[in-house]
């Protein structure tokens, strides 16, 4: 049980770090990496809970999340490239044509 707390703790720390990264970093690719870290933190939590609950549902969920993360990166990197083509930068602060 104590080891379980450790797993969940690590997962939450990773998730929080990712969330902070999304909020403070300005480079779109770094922001995207932070989001991937959050997803993987959740994966860790799923696996730990799966062990705790004694069924495999959580581990199956991890596979689905991994596939979706892959799809997200395919789409996301394409979008970031298309932004780079038009403004020659991937800083989110430079993408400021649309505001208020």
């Amino acid at each position: 049980m104590t080891s379980m707390v450790a797993y969940i703790g690590v997962s939450l720390v990773l998730f929080t770090l990712g969330a902070i990264g999304v909020c403070i970093r300005r480079n779109a690719i770094v922001v995207f990496m932070c989001i991937e870290m959050m997803l993987n933190a959740v994966n860790l939590a799923f696996v730990a809970f799966s062990k705790l609950q004694g069924n495999l549902d959580g581990q199956v969920a991890v596979f689905f999340v991994m596939v979706i993360a892959a799809a997200e990166s395919a789409v996301g990197l394409a979008i970031i490239i298309s932004v780079f083509r038009s403004i020659v930068s991937v800083e989110t602060t430079d993408a400021a044509q649309l505001k208020w």
Binding site: V22, A28, V31, F32, I35, V75, G76, I79, I80, S82, V83, S86, I87, T92, A95, Q97, L98
Partner: peptide, 8 residues
């Protein structure tokens, strides 16, 4: 630009 913001 909109698509990048939406995506992130």
């Amino acid at each position: 630009e909109a698509s990048m913001k939406y995506f992130l």
